[in-house]
Design a protein around this nucleic acid. Structure first.
Lengths: 225, 225
DNA sequence: ACAGCGGCGAGAATATCATTCTCTGAATAA
DNA sequence: TTATTCAGAGAATGATATTCTCGCCGCTGT
């Protein structure tokens, strides 16, 4: 395919418009097909993850479930990590939308931030039923193996918290000397990570950290003013 | 060992004292040998980790380096993860000692806590030279695969922070309503995790979070009092 | 001194995946 | 119709962890 279009680039006069259109039509079709295939892989993976509540599936499982082939898989993804990354990005984006919507229900900027923190905490903790082992399970691994991509995936959530934090600042409710963007990053990571490790219940003692506790910590810290 | 002493408890008449002693002597020797072997594995692994600055070594490497055998390895460890866990626990214990010592240099409880937080932050961030890829590299994976063991490994550090936090409370410097033990857990995790993800430098923008920022966040939170 | 036994080195055999490669049939375009 | 591209099936490869099989060696009770 690339071999067909490249020649036209080197000698444009040779390629009449109809041919370009034809090529484009076929290209578009190909893209569509590719998107559908990718979609099927993503759906299959998501289904498996939800079922097994872990990201420990094999590529083969995804391939079988999506009724496609290994060949196809590797033609569309650079590897398993890209598939996971895609799902992770997606989950994070949807979650940030959800949080943004929830926060919008509050009129006070600090309340908006509070709601966001608390909801993020809930969403980030291990299996509140069957959702998002992506956050809790997968994120840590990626953070080690593909930090740059993870940062990109975090972007929407970070943007949300930056917004909220900036609003808090504009309302004069931010402590002196706190830079809103950095605070946003700090809070986001704190909440996500703490939620993660707090989730181990077992026969434990007092652990079950609550969203309120986390919020109080973020908002007011530890020290007596 | 426990198995040798227990039988004597259930049927004491059968086991004369000399036999017990003899058995114990041989048992003790065996234990000693086992400990030495384990030690060699641990040393070898630690050396490799320090060299390659990653925990991505193969069991075979460790075996070769320690001049022992795979058979021995699996006779002494349940698997690679146990080896790593052992090293992790150790590193964490040594770090908590180091931090405890550093904190002891301060007379004010809140200062002690501050020093502890800042040092923990520095120790937890990716390779400030060649040390502890155990924290940064390995911990996340374990947190997913063996959360219970990780919690155990965290115990000494948690104990330290609990102590420091309690001292802060006793000095009346803890904000109302903050439970020292939970706050200790919260702070420890926050600092360790934030340190981790902050370490990715590259061509980045403003990221390099500082220990001071983290401390300010923990101590005073975000909101205007 | 000797037979049995446990610990261990050497390294082959397995098992599990991810990833790549080869063959092939079918849809599509020319 | 024929050539080309696409994509399914699944075998081949490669990297590791983990297990297994052979012996050897030293110790221990007889």
């Amino acid at each position: 395919m690339a071999q067909k279009t490249d020649p036209s680039a080197s000698t444009p006069a040779e390629e009449p418009a109809w041919k370009q259109r034809a090529v484009e039509r076929s290209t578009k079709a190909a893209k569509l097909r590719a998107e559908q295939r990718v979609e099927r892989f993503l759906d299959a993976a998501q289904a498996i993850i939800t079922e097994k509540n872990t990201t420990d599936f094999t590529v083969q499982e995804v391939v079988d479930r999506s009724r496609q082939s290994l060949r196809s898989f590797y033609q569309h993804f650079d590897g398993k990590h890209e598939l996971l990354l895609a799902l992770f990005e997606d989950a994070l984006r949807r979650s940030s939308d959800q949080i943004r919507a929830a926060a919008a229900g509050q009129s006070d900027p600090l309340d908006r931030l509070r709601v966001a923190v608390q909801l993020l905490f809930e969403l980030s903790r291990p299996d509140p039923g069957a959702q998002r082992p992506l956050f809790t399970d997968f994120a840590p691994q990626l953070l080690v193996s593909h930090p740059a991509e993870v940062k990109i995936a975090h972007a929407p959530m970070l943007a949300l918290f930056s917004d909220l934090m900036t609003q808090v600042e504009e309302a004069g409710q931010l402590r002196e000397g706190v830079r809103p963007r950095r605070a946003a990053a700090l809070v986001m990571q704190t909440v996500m990570f703490v939620a993660q490790s707090s989730g181990v219940a077992e026969e434990d003692n007092a652990h079950p950290l609550s969203a309120d506790e986390v919020w109080d910590f973020c908002a007011m810290g530890l020290a007596q003013p």
